[in-house]
Nucleic acid binder design. Sequence first.
DNA 1: ATGACTGGCCCTGCCAGA
Length: 260
Amino acid sequence: MRIATWNVNSVRQRLEHLLGYLKEQQPDVLCLQEIKCQDEAFPRAEIESAGYNAAVHGQKTFNGVAILSKRPVEVTLGLPGDDQDTQSRYIEAIVPTEAGGVVRVASIYLPNGNPINTDKYAYKLAWMERLTNYTRELLKLEEPLVLAGDYNVIPEPRDARDPAAWTNDALFLPETRARFRTLLHLGLTDALRATTDAGDLYTFWDYQAGAWQRNFGIRIDHLLLSPQAADRLQSVTIDKYMRAAEKPSDHVPIRIDIKT
DNA sequence: ATGACTGGCCCTGCCAGA
């Protein structure tokens, strides 16, 4: 089974790229973040014509997540733990496998958190704690579980071309990275790091200041795997070529193949 | 080089992103 995640930075602006990606890479499941539209405005018909079911948790203007799947899925919207949270940043699906099993997949858009020393950073840390608490429950199910998305976390210095430039950024502060490690220490595996120790592997390049041309990238989009998923991991690919397209997203897709 | 972009929005400068 092929599972991909991509922060599209507006699904309506990126529809042609999205349809091309589905056709080229044929993911069984594609997690989207920053769709930036309400459910009614989601390009459902075009995606269904391409052979995919769409589970959408939209929001006006900002955020918004979705899960596209070749097979019909059972869907849950929102991250438990805060009924007052109005931001659409989490959607989860139970995906059936050919063999009669299931893989549980979440599409996550973790808060950016900048500027630090504001309530935005506090919200980020609180959201990470909620994700950790909920993941602890999910892991008790002992299922293949894939938590995929834009974590807005640079885990280590080797995950940035110029780590010093991110010293006081919400994506790289020690507290952010510590909370990310706490999540991993529940028993999750960072899929990319299960396959390589190499640096210079990025998933985001800013639109500004020639970041792409200078390869001023960061690795912030991650697929975190339960033991049952990690044991089935076959390959991990960052689809870097997507950043070279006309009118690209500032993030590129990252995908895994797992044996099911 | 103290710069540099993109998307959404009750439509036009401002917020958000990272």
